[in-house]
Computed example of a mutant assay.
Amino acid sequence: MALPLWPVDLPQAPERRSWSGGPREDRAVFEPDVGPPLLAARTTADTWEWNGTFPMLTRAQVQIFYAFWGVDLRRGTLPFLWIDPVLHDEARWIFGAAQDRAWSIIASGGRHFDLSLTLIRLPG
């Protein structure tokens, strides 16, 4: 089964200054009684977590996003394909489980809305 693609009717990259993130802490840290911490890899590949905002979505684009997240991704539980805005390659992504919401919509005035979310770039 092919992975869903980020919808073409949505912005293809977040607002440049809003996109921030880096590698997740995927190491196990052990604090011995003496000496420096001991580190061990918990995974065989890194995952990267990014936060960003897609500004000025129309009401129609918000509905497209709702359908993508809710139906295509089964409420954000499935991965999808999207072009990495930094590396410009196609990658597998999944919505992050940050804090108490998967994403947020903010009214930005008039008929527009800002979509803020956390995405995790998956290995492979």
Rank of each mutant, 00 (worst) to 15 (best):
I83F: 08
L73W: 04
A45H: 00
G110P: 12
A60V: 08
H88D: 05
R92A: 02
R42Q: 09
V86R: 15
S18T: 13
P55T: 14
H88K: 14
R16A: 08
G21M: 00
A13N: 05
G109W: 01
T53Y: 05
L117I: 06
P4Y: 09
F113E: 12
G110H: 11
F113T: 12
V8Y: 11
A107D: 08
S18C: 07
T47D: 00
D100V: 02
R75M: 08
W69K: 06
H88E: 10
I105D: 06
E31A: 11
G109A: 09
A107W: 15
W19P: 05
D89V: 07
P7S: 11
V29S: 04
I83D: 13
L122M: 07
V8I: 06
I83Y: 13
L38K: 10
I106C: 02
T53N: 06
Q63T: 11
L119T: 09
G96I: 01
I83W: 06
T47S: 09
P32D: 01
F65T: 00
T44I: 00
D26M: 11
F65V: 09
D100S: 14
R24G: 00
L81I: 04
P55R: 11
R16V: 04
L115N: 10
I106H: 15
A97R: 15
D26A: 06
W93H: 07
G70V: 04
L39G: 00
A41G: 14
S20C: 03
F80R: 00
